[in-house]
Simulated scan of single mutants.
Amino acid sequence: MNQIRRTSNLAIVSLVCGVLGWTLAPFLGSIIAVITGHMARAEIRRSAGTLDGDGLAVAGLVLGWLAVGLTLVGIFIVFAFLGGLAWLAALNS
């Protein structure tokens, strides 16, 4: 007899927040997507086959980590640019 597998709510939250991290709530959505994605994958592993949604959780994790990584790279570029401007200003004074 086939057992009905339901989708993990945390996996759904992870995917939705991962998309929100790229649209309406850039940093907060990404952080929530990463946290709930890891929680969902752990929940799915512990469920002994009764929960589904690992792909949703992985998609949320990928979207979340990409947004966090690009945000950090962007912050680094801004500081490097501003540091270069400060260095040029110090040379010219």
Rank of each mutant, 00 (worst) to 15 (best):
N2H: 09
N2M: 15
Q3P: 09
Q3T: 15
I4F: 11
R5S: 14
R5I: 13
R6G: 10
R6N: 14
T7N: 12
S8H: 10
L10N: 10
L10M: 12
A11C: 12
I12C: 12
S14I: 15
L15K: 11
L15P: 08
V16T: 15
V16W: 01
G18T: 14
G18V: 15
V19P: 00
V19D: 10
V19Q: 15
L20G: 11
G21E: 04
W22T: 07
T23P: 09
T23W: 09
L24Y: 14
A25M: 11
A25C: 10
P26H: 13
F27G: 15
F27K: 12
F27S: 12
L28M: 11
G29Y: 06
I31A: 14
I31K: 13
I31P: 03
I32Y: 05
I32P: 03
I32W: 05
A33T: 08
V34M: 12
V34P: 04
I35T: 13
T36P: 03
G37P: 01
H38N: 07
M39V: 09
M39W: 08
M39H: 08
M39C: 09
A40R: 02
A40G: 11
R41L: 12
A42R: 14
A42N: 13
E43A: 07
E43M: 10
E43D: 09
I44Y: 09
R45H: 08
G49P: 11
G49A: 07
T50Q: 07
L51N: 04
G53T: 03
G53W: 01
G55H: 06
V58K: 07
G60Q: 02
G60R: 02
L61C: 07
V62I: 13
V62N: 03
V62R: 06
L63T: 02
G64F: 03
W65Y: 10
L66F: 08
L66A: 06
A67W: 00
A67E: 01
V68E: 05
V68C: 13
V68I: 15
G69D: 12
G69A: 13
T71E: 11
L72V: 08
L72Y: 04
L72K: 02
V73Q: 01
V73I: 11
V73W: 04
I75F: 05
I75T: 05
I75W: 04
I77C: 08
I77H: 03
V78M: 04
V78F: 00
V78S: 00
F79C: 02
A80T: 07
A80K: 06
L82P: 02
G83L: 03
G84H: 02
L85M: 05
L85N: 01
W87Q: 00
A89H: 02
A89L: 00
A90W: 04
A90N: 06
N92M: 00
